[in-house]
């Protein structure tokens, strides 16, 4: 009997250790907390509060259990290099959202990948300012090797001087496996700073990221006129098609997320459809001015003049 008790004790100790490693609340404590919460539902919230970054979009926040962790890795993955715009856009909008919620002087570090910069272009600070991040908010790093990039990310997280770190990598490099990602994850946890892992053209891979998104481009929202109506055929706020690939929540989640760079917040995007486009033009294009009969400005000829390549 005594032996059995010792074995139980060891088992509990091991469980606690595993729980600690995984960053979950301890089973025994969790049970105690549940008992507490039954008595005092308000108190639990304030106690068990790992810092999180909510999207402000209810279905997403429910799936993320309150938001993105601010002391861990979040992976953002894209299928193709061609989706680099959407992938970088999402990572930067998250950083900008974070800065909007926690205003601080500390900058953001973007660790660029050299090949991605050639393939998808270099960060453009004027465009970033319109996107919600001012020039002083970003430090760019362009290490030559992946090892340097990993060292840089680790140092940046450990220093605690940066509000967030974006680590841009391409594909699934062999040198960045589970061990390295776990190491980065522990650093992030110790320093309480988020790391956004931006993986262009990458496969799903086991990592210590607590959440992984697959991001695809989606048609942008329309511009809104001051009176609330929609300006047809215009390209407004960017929209991302997000799929939550990895989370504690077993149900897969896919939604359209719209980023508003002016208010620096997210909203749920609507399927814009193809109301106005070249291929299916509007049936009634609105009031045209009546043709003037014998003046210089005649009614325009039907259709538009188009430049074709010369046949021969």
């Amino acid at each position: 009997m005594a032996e059995h008790a010792t074995a139980q004790e060891t088992l509990f100790a091991l469980r606690e250790q595993i729980a600690r490693l995984e960053g979950k609340s301890l089973p025994a404590l969790a049970a105690a907390e549940q008992a507490d919460s039954a008595a005092d539902p308000e108190g639990r919230k304030s106690k068990n509060n790992t810092p999180r970054l909510p999207f402000g979009v209810p279905p997403m926040d429910i799936a993320l259990e309150g938001g993105l962790p601010l002391d861990g890795i979040t992976e953002i993955r894209s299928h193709l290099m061609g989706d680099a715009g959407a992938a970088s856009g999402l990572a930067l909008s998250l950083a900008s959202h974070l800065k909007a919620r926690q205003p601080s002087e500390a900058p953001l570090l973007w660790i660029c990948d050299v090949v991605s910069m050639q393939e998808a272009g270099i960060p453009y600070s004027i465009g970033l300012k319109q996107f919600g991040l001012s020039r002083r908010d970003i430090l760019y790093a362009s290490p030559r090797k992946l090892d340097d990039a990993l060292w840089l990310a680790e140092t940046a997280l450990a220093s605690g001087a940066l509000v967030a770190v974006i680590l841009e990598i391409r594909g699934n490099p062999k040198h960045f496996g589970l061990t390295e990602s776990r190491r980065l994850g522990l650093r992030a946890k110790a320093a309480g700073r988020p790391l956004f892992l931006l993986r262009h053209a990458g496969e799903e891979e086991a990592s210590s990221a607590s959440f992984r998104f697959l991001v695809e481009p989606a048609p942008a929202a329309h511009r809104h006129l001051p009176d609330g109506s929609v300006l047809g055929d215009s390209i407004g706020h960017p929209v991302f098609r997000l799929t939550l690939e990895k989370s504690r929540n077993p149900a897969p989640l896919s939604l359209l997320l719209e980023w508003n760079p002016h208010d620096r917040q997210f909203s749920l995007g609507q399927d814009a459809g193809e109301a106005f486009s070249f291929r299916n033009p509007p049936a009634h294009p609105g009031a045209r001015l009546p043709a003037s009969a014998d003046r210089q400005n005649r009614a325009p000829a039907l259709g538009t003049v188009v430049a074709f390549e010369r046949a021969s």
Partner: peptide, 11 residues
């Protein structure tokens, strides 16, 4: 600039 500028620019 008044109009939108891209996020990433090609050299």
């Amino acid at each position: 600039p008044r109009s939108d500028r891209p996020l990433r620019l090609f050299r």
